[in-house]
Amino acid sequence: MKSTVKFLFKTLLFALPVLLVFEVLFRLGYFPIITNSTIFDLKMIRLQKQHIERVKVMSIGSSVGLYEFNSDIILQNLHTSYYNFASWGLQIGDIRTLVKSFAKDYRPRYVIIGSSIGDFIAPLNETYLNYVNTGTYIRKNFPEVFYFKNYNSIHQIIRRKHTAFPVQLDSWGGALLTVKAKDINREKWNEHNIFPTKYTAYQYHELDSLGIWLQAQHIKLIFVQVPIKASYANTPVSKQILQHHFDQCQAIIEKHAGVYLNYHNPAVFTDSLFFDQYHLQAAGGRVFTRQLVVDIKKIIK
C-alpha cells in the first residue's frame, strides 16, 4: 500500500508542473485550440469568462451574422438579454449543431439566424463537435481541459495567437468592421461564389431539421436574409437563383412557424455600405440593424 501511495503521489507531483504550464498559458491569453475557427474559440472563452447564464435572444450565423448585427442598437431596442454567437464560416448544418448545444446552456426563447447564400455551400465542419461534445460544466468552468482534449501543441497555440486575424468583439459577441476604401479587396468586391453547390440541398435539409427541433423546443426561429451587394444578381440567371434560394428558405422557415425576414434591397443597401459582395461595413450594419429591430420588436415580447 505504501509503495502504491508513493507511486501515486510522485506521479501527481510530476504532472503538476505540466498542468501549471497550461494554466499559465491560459492566463497569458494563449487559449486552447478547440475548433479550427479562431473566432469561435475566442468567443467561447469570452463567454466562459463573462459567466453568462441565460440569453433570451440569441443570434447566430456566419460572418454576415457576426459583422452586421449592431449589438448596441439591438440592446437599446429590445431591452433584454442578448448574445451574438455568430462565427466565420458557419454553415447551416453547423448552426444547427451549435444551436442545439447553446439552447441547452442558455435557454433562449428566440433564435435569430443572420444568413446569406454562403451558409449553404460547404460541408459540415466537424471540429465544432470538439466543443459541443464536451460537458457543459467542463466548458463553463474548466476550459483548460481543451488543451488536453484536443492535443494542442504549444507551438500551434502560440502560432495561432500571433497569426489570427484580429477581431474586436464587443461585450455581446458582435464585431462591426470598417474597411477603408483603399483596403477593399478588389477580387472579393465582385466575387461570385459558386451557388448552389453539391452541399446546398443538404444544407436546406439541415435548416428544415433545425426548424423542426426549435419548434419542438418552443423556441421562435427568426431567419434573417441579410443584404447582398447589387452586382451579385446582375444577370437574369443569378437573379433567378437568388430568388429561388429566398423562396426555398422562406418555405422551410414558415413551415415550422418561424419568421422569415428578407433585407436584400439594393436600393437601400447601396455599394458604399459594403466592403465586399456579401458583407456590410459598420455603417451598413447600423442601417440594417435599425430596420431589423423595427421588425423583430413586433415578434419579441
Partner: peptide
C-alpha cells in the same frame, strides 16, 4: 530528461488526433 521529453511533447505534438 523526463521533463525535457514532456516539453518536446507538449510543444511539438501534432494537433491532429
Amino acid at each position: 530528461i523526463y521533463y525535457g521529453l514532456i516539453l518536446i511533447i507538449i510543444t511539438f505534438t501534432a494537433t491532429r488526433n
